[in-house]
Amino acid sequence: MKQQMKALFDQVTMSEECEMRIEKMLRENGKKKHFGVKRKAVIAAVAAAVLCALPITAYAATGGEILRFLGGKGTIYHGSAENGSVIAKVEMETSPENDLFRQENGKLYLMGSGGEIDLTDQLSETEPYIYSCAAADGTVHYLIIGGSAENYGYAEFVKDADGVWQGGYSYNAVGEWYKQGARELELPWAGMIENAVDGADDENAAVSATSEEWTSIDSEG
């Protein structure tokens, strides 16, 4: 079996395109000798692992919508899961100017609207740090942040001027703090977030739970 597996997986290699993309990223960063401007790459990398759950009725008709986040621009896409339920995702586009966080000397800073906020001693694996700010058009942005200064995660959710949740995205948000934050904000996707975070013991169960959640949202829509 070892030989068969060897012969098989020898043929499974990273695509040239991906190889070039990552190599370029590494090369450019090496030249700059600092890591602070790589938010774009980070967000791009996690875009696939990130989900934005949306009220299907709000977006199904257009099939695409732009959401402005503090962390950049999110484009909403819709699709269908194998079981026929409707799903949505956010592709994030960000730029270095949108860097929300800065890590320095073991400390983590949030670039808040009123200046930098030192989060280092305020982060926890269980309790969320929630930051909110309002845009000129009445949209309110909420950041749920947790983990540690070295290994932090966050999620951003947006509520429009009418108080309707529009969507969100997350980065490295897998801790208890994320569940707690979703509950505190009373996000309509809190159940899904909880299932996803709890899915650690059985990855496949987490995916199944997601599909069921989507089905129920779809039927409500």
Binding site: I87, M192, A196, G199, E203, A206
Partner: peptide
Amino acid sequence: SRNFLRSFWRRN
């Protein structure tokens, strides 16, 4: 990868 599988988005 485990983080990814825990997230509630999976591509089709």
